[in-house]
């Protein structure tokens, strides 16, 4: 099996954050940090851009609202033109509520499924789970992983780099990502 990534452990959240910014400054792009809880400021330390989920939600919400409004207009004015409580066929006021509801519904779909797409879920397995050591991130460990896909990746060089920034228990993870 090919090398998938190199993993190093750190003692504290602060150490992990330092390591993340060093890794970012060293020019690595494909790396990730794992900890038992969210660490404030980690996004900046890793140099992550803002998530594009918001954009997906916005587009989906507008699509939902359009579908909601157009569907009702079509049903009420041409497919089944029924006069309801003496109001005009095109009573847009009555359509607003369902338009709003579909706006929210599609936005929520965009948020959930957009997120799944971006974090590449669902999947059955991940090469990191081959590492026994990786289990510490569900308890008290702080782990930084540099993936072998990274342009700067080089087995020995990256190992030395991780050791130099204070990484412990450096481990080669093999597997297919």
């Amino acid at each position: 099996m090919k090398t998938w990534a190199i993993l190093a452990q750190f003692d504290t959240p602060a150490d992990l954050m330092h390591a993340a910014s060093s890794t970012r400054d060293a020019g690595y792009r494909k790396f990730d940090c794992h900890s038992p809880f969210p660490i404030h400021g980690m996004d900046d330390a890793m140099g992550l851009k803002r998530s594009s989920v918001g954009f997906i939600v916005g587009v989906m919400a507008v699509i939902g609202a359009t579908i909601g409004f157009v569907l009702q207009t079509w049903v009420a004015t041409s497919a089944y033109p029924l006069v309801i409580s003496g109001k005009p066929l095109f009573s847009w006021q009555a359509f607003i509520i369902i338009t709003f509801a579909l706006f929210v519904l599609f936005g929520a779909f965009g948020a959930v499924f957009g997120m799944f797409r971006l974090i590449r879920l669902p999947r059955w397995h991940h090469p990191l789970f081959y590492s026994e050591q990786f289990k510490v991130v569900t308890d008290d460990g702080f782990v930084l992983v540099i993936e072998s896909d990274d342009a700067k990746f080089d087995e020995n060089g990256t190992k030395e780099f991780l050791a130099a920034i204070g990484g412990k228990n450096i481990e080669l993870v093999r597997g297919e990502g």
Partner: peptide, 11 residues
């Protein structure tokens, strides 16, 4: 909107 729609519906 809620105030308006209820009144508009009931007429």
């Amino acid at each position: 909107g809620s105030q308006y729609y209820l009144i508009w519906y009931a007429n």
